Computed example of a mutant assay.
Amino acid sequence: MRLTLHTDYALRALIFLTWTTDRLASIREIATTYGISENHLVKIVHKLGQQGFIETVRGRNGGIRLARDACMICVGDVVRVTEEGLGSVSGAEKKSHAEEESSRTVPHSRFQSVVNRALVAFMAVLDDTRLSDLIFDEQRQMLGVMTSPRARCAKPDDDRCASTPAS
């Protein structure tokens, strides 16, 4: 499974916000830290705000922050929100010429079943991962960002994330 830069940048922004829980962060600050286009990051932050992962504060002293603790943000939920077409492989999709040629040698329904099982396993790992699990001391030191005392916390009693995006 290959994730897009959109997802990578969304996770980077969320990770950055775990280190700045004592204050509001700016999009410019995150973009500069990671070398990301501010315009692209604005779109990502907007989507993360709509889905309840972050809170945005407008105005002169505004900025962004996590909407909840990092241990309550499921990586699988973030990926579902930021990745398009993450659903199961559909037999009804239009096939390319190469796919049509390969379907003559490998039955499509068998291939579809294997890919769907792989996708379920992939998402199960992401669903078992919280944002707080992605924080590493080396990254904190490299970025020179203060670490939140709440950045690492125990997983909630319910180890499973919601199967739908955060609201």
Score class of each variant (00 low, 15 high):
17 L>T: 06
25 A>D: 03
28 R>G: 11
29 E>G: 06
31 A>E: 01
32 T>M: 03
32 T>W: 00
37 S>I: 01
37 S>H: 09
37 S>W: 01
40 H>E: 09
42 V>K: 13
47 K>P: 01
48 L>I: 04
52 G>K: 07
52 G>R: 09
53 F>K: 07
54 I>M: 07
54 I>P: 06
57 V>E: 13
60 R>V: 07
62 G>H: 08
65 R>F: 02
65 R>W: 01
67 A>V: 04
67 A>R: 12
68 R>C: 08
69 D>M: 10
69 D>C: 03
73 I>F: 05
73 I>G: 10
74 C>W: 13
75 V>A: 11
80 R>A: 11
82 T>C: 15
82 T>E: 15
84 E>Y: 04
84 E>R: 13
84 E>A: 09
86 L>T: 01
87 G>C: 00
89 V>S: 02
91 G>K: 06
92 A>I: 04
93 E>W: 04
95 K>L: 14
96 S>M: 07
97 H>A: 12
97 H>L: 15
97 H>K: 13
99 E>I: 04
104 R>A: 15
104 R>L: 15
105 T>K: 12
105 T>F: 14
105 T>D: 13
107 P>I: 09
107 P>W: 05
107 P>M: 10
108 H>M: 10
109 S>N: 08
110 R>D: 14
111 F>C: 05
112 Q>N: 11
113 S>D: 14
113 S>R: 14
117 R>S: 15
118 A>D: 07
120 V>E: 15
121 A>C: 03
121 A>N: 09
122 F>P: 00
123 M>W: 02
123 M>P: 08
123 M>V: 02
127 D>K: 02
127 D>R: 05
128 D>L: 07
128 D>A: 15
129 T>V: 14
131 L>V: 05
131 L>F: 07
133 D>S: 08
135 I>G: 00
135 I>S: 07
137 D>P: 07
139 Q>A: 08
140 R>F: 00
141 Q>H: 06
143 L>P: 00
144 G>I: 06
144 G>D: 03
